[in-house]
Simulated assay, not measured.
Amino acid sequence: MPIRLVTFDALYTLLEPRAPVAVQYADLFRPYLGSLDPAAIRAAFKPAFKRAQITAPNAPEHFWTAVLRETALAAGADPAALAASLPALVPAALHRFSSREGYTLYDDTLPALEKLRGMGVMTGLVSNADARILDALADLGAAHLLNPILLGERDGPPKPAMALFHRAAVRAGVEHFGEVLHVGDEFENDYNAAWNASVPAVLLRRPGADAAAHREDEAPDAQLAETVASLDEVVTHVELANKPPRPPRRQRRWE
């Protein structure tokens, strides 16, 4: 079955933080809170993020206020200085992580999207990132190559639910889920979730310490997934899938 639509996850698939997130947070904190150890920030960030998902309102400003507050406090920030600086810290963080200031595209992102579209294959986004990722992709010159765009917070429920994958196919006018290929770096939210939705998928395994740290809690089953190391390999995968079948060889008649 030919592939008519390729959907991509966003973070660590199409783009990555320009520097590790903990280093960028340390840079944001420094003018207001002094030097905080990036290792301590890194250890504090994930628990703070998970708690905010449960306790904080859905509005980005309130959510990221909670994340920044808990991360800085756990990393050793002075509570009074933090309370005084949050009105400036939160807008600075929201701006950084909605632009090229905070993110950069992988070298293969634009060439792969352009090659796929040149082959007549649609390219879309299926991500659990908040809507600021669209501003970052636009600032980096990639958003116009992605349609349809489905976000968990806006078009949910988020991955690993099946809805985003199915809605992407419907919006693209693709009738058979088998004509869609999903590409992402997370086993549960991308590879396994897509296959559970009857959408073929490949698991992206980019090299690099930051990308590896992003998937450090991964399930052992990820070792069994079909993987690619770059978006160039995704293009090759689609080219092979869409290659016209060879006509049957005519048998030579012997007299």
Score class of each variant (00 low, 15 high):
Pro60Arg: 12
Arg42Leu: 06
Val121Tyr: 10
Arg42Gln: 12
Ala39Leu: 12
Val180Pro: 04
Ser99Gln: 13
Ala209Lys: 03
Asp37Met: 02
Leu28Thr: 00
Pro57Ser: 11
Ala172Phe: 08
Gln24Tyr: 11
Lys159Pro: 08
Ala19Leu: 15
Gly173Ala: 10
Ser230Ile: 09
Val234Lys: 06
Leu204Ser: 01
Leu15Val: 06
Ala211Ile: 05
Gly173Gln: 10
Ala74Asn: 13
Pro79Leu: 03
Leu224Asp: 10
Thr227Val: 12
Lys159Ile: 07
Ala131Cys: 08
Glu186Arg: 11
Ala136His: 10
His62Lys: 03
Leu33Val: 03
Leu181Phe: 13
Tyr12Ser: 01
Lys243Leu: 14
Ala88Gly: 09
Leu15Pro: 00
Pro79Ile: 07
Glu216Pro: 00
Gly156Tyr: 15
Ala26Lys: 03
Leu164Tyr: 14
Leu145Ile: 02
Ala22Leu: 02
Val174Met: 08
Lys50Pro: 00
Arg252Ile: 08
Leu134Trp: 07
Thr55Pro: 00
Glu186Lys: 03
Val126Ala: 14
Pro160Phe: 07
Arg246Ser: 13
Val199Arg: 04
Leu204Gly: 01
Gly120Ile: 05
Leu151Glu: 03
His95Tyr: 12
Pro247Leu: 13
Val170Met: 15
Ala212Glu: 15
Arg18Lys: 06
Trp195Ser: 07
Ala59Pro: 06
Arg18Met: 01
Tyr32Lys: 04
Ala10Leu: 07
Arg96Cys: 09
Thr104Leu: 11
Gly178Cys: 02
Thr7Asn: 11
Leu15Gly: 06
Val180Cys: 14
Asn147Ile: 03
Lys46Thr: 05
Glu153Ser: 15
Lys159Phe: 12
Val228Ser: 10
Tyr103His: 04
Gly156Asn: 14
